[in-house]
Write a protein that binds this DNA or RNA. Sequence first.
RNA 1: GUCCCCAUCGUCUAGCGGUUAGGACGUCGCCCUUUCAAGGCGGCAACACGGGUUCGAUUCCCGUUGGGGACGCCA
Length: 467
Amino acid sequence: MSIITRFAPSPTGFLHIGGARTALFNWLFARHMGGKFLLRIEDTDRERSTREAVDAIFSGLKWLGLNWDGEAVFQFARAPKHREVVDELLKSGNAYYCYCSQEELAAMRDQAKAAGLAPKYNGYWRDRDPKLAPVDIKPVVRLKAPAVGKTVLNDLVQGTVITDNNQLDDMILLRSDGTPTYMLSVVVDDHDMGVTHVIRGDDHLTNTFRQIQIYQAMSWQTPEFGHIPLIHGPDGAKMSKRHGALGVDAYKAMGMLPQAMCNYLLRLGWAHGDDEIIPTEQAVQWFNIEGIGKSPARFDMNKLLSLNAHYLRQTANDQLADEISEFLPKDVSEKLKEAGYRQRAVSGMDGLKQRAKTLLELAEGAKFYLLDAPLPMDSELKSLLNKAESQEILGKLIKLLESFGEWNESSLHSMVKEFSEGLEVGLGHVAKLVRAALTGSNISPSIFEIMQVFGKQETLSRLRTKY
RNA sequence: GUCCCCAUCGUCUAGCGGUUAGGACGUCGCCCUUUCAAGGCGGCAACACGGGUUCGAUUCCCGUUGGGGACGCCA
């Protein structure tokens, strides 16, 4: 039998990092098994669901390369189907109307808590004659869950977990306004969509017992469940906004590469021996649910960054030249469209990409190739260049360069080195001046590589520029 | 409060009864070097604690402690 997984986020905010990992695991498992990966938007909370959030989920998944099979299912649209199931449950005696008010329910919870029990509904209307119902209260429909015995979950990740049914109460299936609850909708949708493996965050673990009760009441076969540990913030607590970790779009904006994100997320809670660099294609081959760890992992930006730097260096130069475009100011990125400037950026990437961890840093580092002299420069560097002594050195160098024929990195290196030794100032000092004139900075790739990329004419023109 | 889950370097992890407890990120030092990186080499750094089981426990069992999660007419 072919397996079917799904990712079922609620569109109430951005696609966060934990959700992305859940999606990744579902996607990897489906692809590994040659099955299907479905997407369902759980938009039954009409108050909080937004179109923007739906778009963020779509674009986030696409960016990560987690393509889903078929059209995304919107849960709210299936409400009529969910209500049909409630009718069936009512008919079969597996559900009943409950007329308790919010106040009464709160009192019950307090009472249970005071008695040392889990705060829950006490089943007041479970076996009561509906004729006794107050006329002014709109009822909810509750599942008539087994009151005794145990519910067993053989979880793919967590192992066998057993809950005493007295821990669970009769959950609400239909709200008083007639809308289905999450608990019911998930079960009905997973069943109708043919989902065979439900892989989700372990914050859903206890919900699963309730959901199993619905499957049982409907005599439906339960899918396999795998509850993966949540990602925690650096302080060990559940990942939240205050950890500064936002939606996947935020990581994109930081200049992260999707391959790096996937690799990082995969290694959070899953390992393949000592392997660290696991490109997605490799992950599809290797992925298995058994390998998922049970302990929560903390989010570590440094490791993500290091992985990102790795994938950045693996990326082809011309592709990087395209990628940095959106990280550049408009006027600078426009230059990228002109063949000459673009060629410089592409040629310069070898030196640039090993100095950047993100596309943002890469773009920053590439600016000097795209800007025209005079370059923006801090005052300290300016005054260094303006010193008579500096000008004298540069003047002599320019003369030599003008008649220098072998315009390539290594020849330029030897030549300038010899030149410096002749002047008895040291290559370091000369390099600093050249670097300033060529890049406007005192940090850059090799100046000889830069000279080669610029070519003789542009190099000399920059060296002659006065600040 | 009740229930559930977790526990190896600072972090992510390998380990599935006998290992000098391995790798990666970070960190420190050295090499390379025109700056900054990258790269190479090396150092520091962990089995939470207490009981069992066993010839032998990081590994299996129980407890303690610590962390996390769930207990909505949210999803």
